[in-house]
């Protein structure tokens, strides 16, 4: 047990300047929560005060911010000067996940929670946080098994309820996504006066193994969003049109169950509830 405790403590030091200071000042008290041998305690006390621990902390921050910047570049851009504080608060609250998707999900939930309770505000943030998370989620969805589920459901339950194809998502925007995402792609500073407000939907489609995105009409977007929460039936021209494109597919019990039980949070109201 003590080697494990030593490794946890060493990793904690690399993540926290504040812990390093406490350990350097009073190692007995600061390390009391770790099950350590006296030698391990002396090693950590020495490490906490070394210049090299500053390098470790820089590498820790660099590697964690790289993960966030990979998944959520627009979110970080919109946060601007606040990004450092928000990321710091997130890291203090959440250890680094090995799985980048889960790290991104936790970060998105964290930012949305800050928006909900008023600790954070800003135009476009909510929709961009959701969009960037969903864009990543759909790109790392296991494609082979998803396609196999769709094929099996189509074979066994061709006339049953429909559900959105597991490799597509409809993301809701309250601003014109085309203009907004273009500003973000070019890292334009706020404000974005030419971005229209309204109800918009963007389709993210990973069926072909690469990401395609295009605008949806409002009825189509609503159908795909609502359909993600449960099977829909073919009762309108819009559903038929989406089914003809393969965006709605036979749900089948396996797929409905998969969507309901998935450990992975998905787009929609149930997705980004505070953890």
């Amino acid at each position: 047990m003590t080697l494990l405790a030593f490794q946890l403590a060493l990793a904690d030091l690399a993540a926290s300047a504040e812990l390093c200071t406490r350990v350097a000042n009073d190692p007995e008290a600061a390390l009391a929560g770790y099950d350590l041998t006296p030698v391990e305690r002396r090693r950590l006390a020495s490490a906490a005060g070394q210049r090299g621990m500053r390098v470790n902390r820089s590498l820790y921050r660099y590697n964690r911010v790289t993960a966030l910047a990979t998944v959520s570049p627009g979110t970080l851009h919109l946060l601007g000067d606040r990004a450092r504080d928000v990321a710091g608060a997130f890291w203090a609250a959440h250890g680094a996940e090995r799985n980048m998707r889960r790290e991104a999900e936790h970060f998105a939930a964290f930012v949305l929670r800050m928006l909900d309770d008023g600790r954070l505000a800003g135009p476009y943030l909510r929709e961009v946080v959701e969009f960037e998370l969903v864009r990543y989620q759909v790109a790392v969805e296991p494609r082979g098994p998803a396609l196999a589920r769709v094929a099996e459901a189509a074979r066994r339950w061709p006339g049953g309820a429909l559900a959105p194809h597991p490799l597509v998502r409809a993301v809701a925007f309250s601003h014109d996504p085309e203009a907004l995402l273009s500003h973000l792609a070019y890292r334009h500073p706020l404000p974005y006066d030419d971005v229209a407000e309204g109800e918009f939907y963007l389709l993210l489609d990973y069926r072909q193994g690469h990401l395609e995105q295009r605008p949806l009409t409002v009825p189509q977007g609503r159908l795909l969003r609502d359909g993600a929460d449960g099977g829909v039936t073919v009762d309108s021209a819009d559903v038929r049109a989406l089914a003809a494109e393969g965006l709605f597919v036979p749900a089948g019990p396996a797929q409905v169950e998969h969507q309901a039980d998935a450990a992975v949070p998905r787009l929609g109201k149930a997705v980004l509830q505070p953890a």
């Binding site: 494990l4 470790n56 590697n63 964690r64 680094a96 090995r98 450990a263």
Partner: peptide, 23 residues
């Protein structure tokens, strides 16, 4: 080296965010 750290539950695996040397 080590980079993997035990998580808070069975579904979580944490990372030290860098490879750290073993003693």
């Amino acid at each position: 080296s080590f980079i993997r750290l035990p998580g808070v539950d069975a579904h979580t695996e944490l990372s030290a965010s860098m490879a750290l040397a073993v003693p």
